[in-house]
Amino acid sequence: MRMNWSEKYLKKMRNEVKERNEDANIAISVKDLYKSFKLPTEKSWGLKQAIFNRLRGIKGYKKQEVLKGISFDIKKGEFLGIVGRNGSGKSTLLKILSEIYLPDKGSVKVNGTLVPFIELGVGFNPELTGRENVYLNGALLGFSNKEMDEMYDEIVRFAELDQFMDQKLKNYSSGMQVRLAFSIAIRARGDILVLDEVLAVGDAAFQEKCNDYFKSLHGNQTVVLVTHSMENVERFCDRAILIEDGKIACDGKPAKVTKEYMKLWD
């Protein structure tokens, strides 16, 4: 029997609301992601070689598939760890999430603002003062001066560098530089924080402080963390993903994933 239009309409509305509620709880949705790189083989650089290669019918590059169909969702407030061997595709995945690379196939849907830290202190310039570097770094991450004004005091306090902010960065010790960069990373007010292997910074006291901070994030902030430290995965993450050879080999509780990770070397 045919539904009349009002029933149909109601059903459609209900479905839409249901979908929207599901969407609202999801921070990042990754569907069927593929990515390959053209790696130049020896000496394909330069105009001359390019023309030679074209004439001889040599491609000049090798195609390397890095991600081969990755799908997962990250819920809001979830602390997700991504683990895997060197070269398994973790960083590539992170760069696609951060819109630095374009995927070959598949989609990434990000709900909210995403603040990526593929590396700490990107754009830091040794000739600028600590203060200027904070604002430059902020602008690169997409924050306005006003937003940075609001975050600035907290960043400086967390880095414990109050009296050094008007000195040039080149006069900082390397530990101080990293502390400043790291403080920007964790104080940046984004809905989603993406961190690539950046936890081990500063001295023991600063480490302690960072650990406490990460624990306090639980449930309040969506974080995606790439790391090789299984200790950190078990300590901070709600969930972990093991990537092996461009595919998800294991997805679930941190304890289970770290066990799988260890098995890779058995």
């Binding site: 000739e127 200027e132 306005s144």
Partner: peptide, 21 residues
Amino acid sequence: GKKNRILLKELVKTDFKLRYQ
């Protein structure tokens, strides 16, 4: 775009500041 303008301003400021340092 607002973000782009801010970023452009910061980069220009930095470049100019550093050029004759």
